[in-house]
Design a protein around this nucleic acid. Structure first.
Length: 989
RNA sequence: GGGCGGUUAGCUCAGCGGUAGAGCACUACGUUGACAUCGUAGUGGCCACUGGUUCGAUCCCAGUACCGCCCA
C-alpha cells in the first residue's frame, strides 16, 4: 500500500504509544549494552491533582529527548516517573469537590473520613497527568510510577525526619510564621506572594500617661524650626489599625530628637486599659510617617524583631481563621495579668500566648471588620490625627470648617497565600523548623566545587545568593493530607527543668517506638497513646489518676503534617527505594540530570541538594538544567482569566505531538522566557511532512525495496552521494555535541537544516537525474541510508513520525526507539566532494538568481556558455552537468566567449554567460551587475582596509590574515569579471 | 531597596572577538518524476546609547537609558 501524502498523527500516535507501552520500551535498562554507563533522570513530580500544561509539556519533552538519546546509545537509562501528593493543592481540590457535591465539609466529616475521600479522589483522577504524559510520547519507566504518599515513600520521609530530629537538625519553636487563614495552616515564605494593593494609612494619637506633655519640634532639612507645639500625645501611623489592640510599645529611632523628651515614658493604649512604653529601636524610619511606630510583636515580622530585642511580650490577637480571638479569660482578667507582666511578673511564652487581650466588643469579629470598628472607635474617642477641612453648604452657600481624620491612600505590599489567595496573617505559633543553617554548607560546596553543575550559570548565582542567606524552613502544616509528623507529646516530669510550659517530645518512626521512649522517660508510670476526642485543650496529654495519684500518662501525636516540599525533597532517593539498599539506588543514584523550571530552584532544587546531602551524603544530581517559564506568543503569563492558555493536548490534536516537541526543543535556549507561538508549531508540523514526503518519494522510486537497516553507508563514487553521506556525518556530530551540552535548540536547528536544507532541498533533487543514469543503484542505497539516518537522528525529538516511517520503509529488526545510535565520524566526509558540490550548488543558485532578476520566464530553458573554467571547475561540470542542467533549467552548454546580449555570472574559478539576446533589458542587466559590484566593492573595501593596516598583519593570527588575503583575491577576481561584463554591455549600447 | 537577566530584521529568537543568521511574516514568480503542510527568487539590520580595551567589538569591560523576572 503506497504511503499517504501526509502523516496521520492522530491515528498513528495512539497506536505507536500503545506499542511502546506494551513493549515496555522505557523500562529501566532497556536497550542497554553490557557494562553500559547509567543515565538517569527523575521527573519533577507533577501534582497528583494536576493536568498537563505547556510548562509540563516543555519540561518533559526535554527529558524525553535526553532519555531517548542515551537509550539509543545503549546506555543504562532510567526515567523515573511519579506524582506528588501536593498537600495544600490536593486538599483544596477535594474540599472544593465536596462543597460542589454539597457533601459534609472536611471538618464535619473528620480527619479519617476526609483522608479516605482524598484517596478515593486520587484513585479516580490521579492518573490524568500520567496519561497525558504518554500522549506527549514520554518514554518513562511506567512500571516504576511512584507517589509521595505510597510505597516506601512515607517510611522514608518519617525516617529522615527522625534522623534529622535526632541530629538536632529539626526543632520546634514558637515563631512568627505566615499564616493562611483560609487553610488554617502555616505556610513557608516561598508560598507567599507579595502583591501591591491599594491601602490606607491611619494616624492615631497615643496619649501620654499621667497627664504629661512635651514640646514637639519639627525641623526642615536646613534645621529651621517649622513647627513647635505642646503635645500630650505621640502620633503613630499604621496600615493595620486592628493590631493596635496587641501593641507592646511605641518605638522611635534613637536619633529622633522630636521624641527624645518622652522616650521611656508610658502612653495609654487607646481602646484598651493598658499602658505601653515608648522605646527606641533602629527599625523606625524618622522620615516615614510621624517617625513613631506601634509595635505589635505577634502580627508583624518587623515588629516581632523589635519586640524580641526589647523583650516585649507578643500578644496574639487572632484565631486560626483570622478572626479576633474569643477564647480564654474575660478581658478584664486578661488585662489585669498583662499589667502584672508589664510590671515585671515572671511569665512564659505559653502564658503570654494564652492571654486574650482583645476587648470584649471586638472578640469574634473578622479582622477586617475589627479594623473598621477600631477606626470608628478611635475617631469617636477623638484620638485620630485630624486636619481642618472647609465645606460649603450647597443650599446656603455658607462655609464651615471642621476637623476630619487624616487617612492617606497609598499602595501597600500585602502578602497573599499562593494557593488560597487570601491575605496572609503573620501569626505567632508553634511550628517545626529545619535548621537549614546547619545543612546548607555541603549544598553550597557541592555546586562551588562542581560536583553539581547548574545550567545556565546565572542559576548558580541565584542558588548561592539564596542559600547564603537561608532562613529556617518551617516544615509543619496544619493540614490533614500529608505525612503526619512523627512526634508524640507528653507532659514533662516534675524533675525535668526544661523550659516551663513546653511539652516533652518523643520523636520516633513508629507508635511503638514512641511508647518505648516515653516509658523510658516516665519510669514506672503506665504510658498510653492518647488519641481521643479533643475535649482536652490543645495538645495537652491525658493523665490518668488512681486515688489522686498519677498512675498513667498519655502521649499524643502531633496532628500536623509535613510541608509537601519536605517529602518531594527526598524524591531522588525515595523513588529508588531508600532506605533499603536497592540495586536501583546503587545503579542510578546520584542521578545524571535534573530538568526543571527556574521558578522552583528554591522550593525544590536547593532543598533536594540539602536533604540528599544531609541524609545520604551525596549530591542528588550531577547536572541541573533550569529552563524559563512558558508564556504566550506575546510573552504574557498564560492564565485562565486572560484566556490565553494554550492547552498542549489541543496542540497535539491539531499538529501532533512531534510538532509540539520539536517546537519545545527549538525554543530551549538557556535563560529567559519561552514564547509559545502556534504558527511556529505549525511550521514544525510541516517539517515532519517534509521528511514524510522525502520518504514517500523514495518509496516511489523503489528505494525501500528489500531494504534492511545498515549501520554503515554504502560504498559510492558519485559526488552527490559522497557529499550527502558526509553531510550526514556532520549532522550527527552537531547533534551529539549539542545534546551533550544540553543545547536542545542547537540540535533541533542542525536537524532542521540537515533534513530540509540538505536532504530535501538538494539531495532529493540531485537524485532525480541520478536515478536515470549509471549511478542509480548506489543512489538508491545512499538515499535509503541517509533517510534512515534522518529518522534515527530525529527520533529523540520527533519519536512518533520517525517510528512510523521506520516501520513502513523496510524490514526492521528492532523498533526505532531501540535502534542503535550511530557512531560514524569525520571519516565519512569527503573534502573533494564537498568542494565540488559547493561549486555545483553555488552555480545553480547564481543562475537561478540571475534568471529571476532579469525576469526570464521560469519555464524557459536557456543556454549556458562558460567563458572561463579552471581545470577543477571543468571537471566539476563534467561530473555534474545533468544535475546543473535540470535544477538551473539549462539547455545547451558550450565554452567560448560571451555572445552578445548575454548576462554574466562570476564564480570562483569560473565565469559564465547566458545568451539572452532580445529577451532581456540591457538597462536591467546593468542594474543587476552594478548591484553585485556594489556589494563586492563593499566587501573588498573592508578587506583592503584590514590588510592595509600594518598592525593587522602584525597582530592577527596568521590564518586570519591568510583567509583575508584569499578572500580579497577571490572577490577581486569576481569583480574583474563583472567589470568586464559591464564594459561589454556598455559597448552594445 | 537587594539579586538575576534582557535590549540583534516587522514578530519570535540564535550568534558572543575577524564585519550578521534562522523560523515566521511580507513581495514577486510558479517551470519541477515527493511535498501547496510546497518550490524558486527577493525585500528587510547605525546588533539600545556613551565611553574603554583591542590591529579589529554585535560579541569583552565600565557607565547610561529602558524592559523583564525573583526576593524584600
Amino acid at each position: 500500500m503506497p504511503m499517504e501524502k501526509t502523516f496521520n498523527a492522530a491515528e498513528a500516535e495512539a497506536r505507536i504509544s500503545k506499542l511502546w507501552i506494551d513493549q515496555k520500551v522505557g523500562r529501566a535498562g532497556a536497550n542497554a549494552k553490557p557494562e553500559a554507563e547509567a543515565f538517569s533522570i527523575m521527573i519533577p513530580p507533577p501534582n497528583v491533582t494536576g493536568s498537563l500544561h505547556m510548562g509540563h509539556a516543555f519540561n518533559n519533552t526535554l527529558q524525553d529527548i535526553l532519555i531517548r538519546w542515551h537509550r539509543m546509545r545503549g546506555h543504562d537509562t532510567l526515567w523515573q516517573v511519579g506524582t506528588d501528593h501536593a498537600g495544600i493543592a490536593t486538599q483544596m481540590v477535594v474540599e472544593r469537590e465536596l462543597a460542589k457535591a454539597k457533601a459534609p465539609s472536611r471538618r464535619e466529616m473528620g480527619r479519617e473520613a476526609f483522608l479516605a475521600k482524598v484517596w478515593e479522589w486520587k484513585d479516580q483522577s490521579g492518573g490524568t497527568i500520567i496519561n497525558q504524559l504518554k500522549r506527549l510520547g514520554a518514554s518513562c519507566d511506567w512500571d516504576r510510577e511512584a507517589f509521595t504518599m505510597s510505597g516506601n515513600f512515607p517510611d522514608a520521609v518519617t525516617k529522615v525526619f527522625v534522623d534529622m530530629y535526632n541530629k538536632g537538625l529539626i526543632y520546634r519553636g514558637k515563631r512568627l510564621v505566615n499564616w493562611d487563614p483560609h487553610f488554617e495552616t502555616a505556610i513557608s515564605d516561598l508560598e507567599v506572594e507579595n502583591i501591591e494593593v491599594k491601602g490606607h494609612m491611619w494616624h492615631f494619637k497615643y496619649i501620654l500617661a499621667g497627664g504629661e506633655s512635651y514640646e514637639y519640634i519639627e525641623k526642615d532639612a536646613e534645621g529651621s524650626v517649622i513647627l513647635r507645639e505642646k503635645r500630650n500625645y505621640i502620633s503613630i501611623a499604621t496600615t493595620r489599625p486592628e493590631t493596635m489592640l496587641g501593641d507592646g510599645a511605641v518605638a522611635v529611632h534613637p536619633s529622633d530628637a522630636r521624641y527624645a523628651p518622652i522616650v521611656g515614658k508610658m502612653v495609654q493604649l487607646p481602646l484598651c486599659d493598658r499602658l505601653i512604653p515608648i522605646i527606641t529601636d533602629e527599625y523606625p524610619d524618622p522620615a516615614f510617617g510621624s517617625g513613631a511606630v506601634k509595635i505589635t510583636g505577634a502580627h508583624d515580622f518587623n515588629d516581632y524583631q523589635v519586640a524580641k530585642r526589647a523583650n516585649l511580650p507578643c500578644y496574639r490577637l487572632m484565631d486560626t481563621r483570622g478572626a479576633m480571638r474569643a477564647d480564654g479569660a474575660p478581658y478584664d482578667v486578661a488585662v489585669a495579668r498583662a499589667r502584672e507582666i508589664a510590671a515585671g511578673s515572671p511569665t512564659t511564652e505559653a502564658e503570654v500566648d494564652s492571654l486574650n487581650l482583645v476587648p470584649e466588643k471586638y472578640r469574634g469579629l473578622d479582622r477586617f471588620e475589627a479594623r473598621k470598628q477600631v477606626v470608628a472607635d478611635i475617631n469617636a474617642a477623638g484620638l485620630a490625627v485630624t486636619v481642618l477641612v472647609k465645606t460649603i453648604d450647597e443650599e446656603t452657600g455658607s462655609e464651615a470648617l471642621h476637623l476630619e481624620p487624616v487617612v492617606d491612600n497609598k499602595p501597600i505590599m500585602q502578602p497573599f497565600g499562593d494557593r488560597s489567595k487570601v491575605v496572609i496573617e503573620p501569626m505567632l505559633t508553634d511550628q517545626w523548623f529545619v535548621d537549614t543553617g546547619l545543612i546548607v554548607g555541603p549544598a553550597l560546596e557541592a555546586v562551588r566545587n562542581g560536583d553539581t553543575v547548574i545550567m545556565p550559570q546565572s542559576g548558580e548565582r541565584t542558588y548561592f545568593h539564596w542559600l547564603e542567606n537561608i532562613e529556617p524552613w518551617c516544615i509543619s502544616r496544619q493540614l490533614w493530607w500529608g505525612h503526619q509528623i512523627p512526634v508524640w507529646f507528653g507532659q514533662r516530669r516534675e524533675d525535668d527543668n526544661e523550659t516551663l510550659g513546653t511539652l516533652k517530645q518523643f520523636c520516633a518512626a513508629t507508635e511503638g517506638e514512641a511508647l518505648n521512649l516515653a516509658k523510658a522517660y516516665y519510669g514506672n508510670l503506665d504510658v498510653f497513646i492518647f488519641d481521643g476526642s479533643n475535649t482536652l485543650p490543645g495538645r495537652n496529654p491525658a493523665i490518668g489518676r488512681t486515688n489522686g495519684t498519677v498512675t498513667s500518662i498519655g502521649i499524643k501525636r502531633d496532628p500536623d503534617v509535613l510541608d509537601t516540599w519536605f517529602s518531594s525533597g527526598l524524591w531522588p532517593i525515595g523513588t529508588l527505594g531508600w532506605p533499603d539498599k536497592t540495586p536501583e539506588l546503587k545503579r542510578y543514584f546520584p542521578t545524571s540530570a535534573l530538568i526543571t523550571g527556574a521558578d522552583i530552584i528554591f522550593f525544590w532544587v536547593a532543598r533536594m541538594m540539602m536533604m540528599q546531602l544531609a541524609v545520604v551524603d551525596q549530591v542528588p544530581f550531577k547536572t541541573v538544567y533550569l529552563h524559563g517559564l512558558v508564556r504566550d506568543a506575546k510573552g504574557k503569563k498564560m492564565s485562565k482569566s486572560l484566556g490565553n492558555v494554550i492547552d498542549p493536548l489541543e496542540i497535539i490534536d491539531e499538529f501532533g505531538a512531534d510538532a509540539l516537541r520539536f517546537a519545545n526543543a527549538a525554543m530551549a535556549s538557556l535563560g529567559g522566557t519561552l514564547k509559545m507561538d502556534t504558527q511556529r508549531i505549525a511550521g514544525y508540523r510541516n517539517f515532519g511532512t517534509k521528511l514524510w514526503n522525502a520518504c514517500r518519494f523514495a518509496e516511489m522510486n523503489g528505494v525501500w525495496e528489500g531494504h534492511t537497516t545498515a549501520t554503515t553507508p554504502p560504498q559510492v563514487t558519485s559526488t552527490a552521494n559522497l557529499w550527502i553521506i558526509g553531510e550526514t556525518a556532520k549532522a550527527l556530530a552537531e547533534v551529539d555535541a549539542a545534546l551533550n551540552d544540553y543545547r536542545f535548540d542547537t540540535a533541533a536547528d542542525a536537524l532542521y537544516k540537515f533534513v530540509w536544507g540538505k536532504v530535501c532541498d538538494w539531495y532529493v533533487e540531485f537524485a532525480k537525474p541520478l536515478f536515470d543514469g549509471p549511478a542509480a543503484a548506489e543512489t538508491r542505497a545512499t538515499m535509503a541510508w541517509v533517510l534512515d539516518q534522518s529518522m534515527i537522528l530525529l527520533h529523540p525529538i520527533m519519536p512518533f513520525i520517525t517510528e512510523e516511517l521506520w516501520s513502513t520503509t523496510g524490514q526492521r529488526a528492532k523498533l526505532l526507539v531501540h535502534t542503535d545510535w550511530p557512531t560514524y565520524g569525520a571519516d565519512l566526509i569527503t573534502a573533494k566532494a564537498d568542494r565540488e558540490m559547493a561549486f555545483v550548488t553555488t552555480l545553480i543558485d547564481e543562475i537561478r538568481s540571475a534568471r529571476a532578476e532579469v525576469h526570464v520566464a521560469a519555464g524557459l530553458k536557456v543556454d549556458l556558455v562558460a567563458t572561463s573554467l579552471s581545470p577543477e571547475a571543468r571537471a566539476a561540470w563534467g561530473r555534474n552537468d545533468s544535475l546543473i542542467r535540470r535544477l538551473a533549467r539549462i539547455d545547451g552548454f558550450s565554452e567560448g566567449p560571451a555572445p552578445k546580449g548575454s548576462i554574466t555570472l562570476a564564480l570562483e574559478g569560473a565565469a559564465f554567460a547566458i545568451p539572452l539576446a532580445g529577451l532581456i533589458d540591457i538597462a536591467e542587466e546593468k542594474a543587476r551587475l552594478s548591484k553585485s559590484m556594489e556589494k563586492l566593492a563593499k566587501e573588498i573595501g573592508g578587506l583592503k582596509g584590514r590588510l592595509n593596516n600594518p598592525s593587522f598583519a602584525a597582530s592577527a593570527p596568521e590564518e586570519v590574515v591568510d583567509e583575508a588575503k584569499a578572500n580579497l583575491d577571490a572577490r577581486e577576481e569576481e569583480a574583474a569579471k563583472l567589470q568586464a561584463a559591464l564594459k561589454r554591455l556598455a559597448d552594445i549600447g
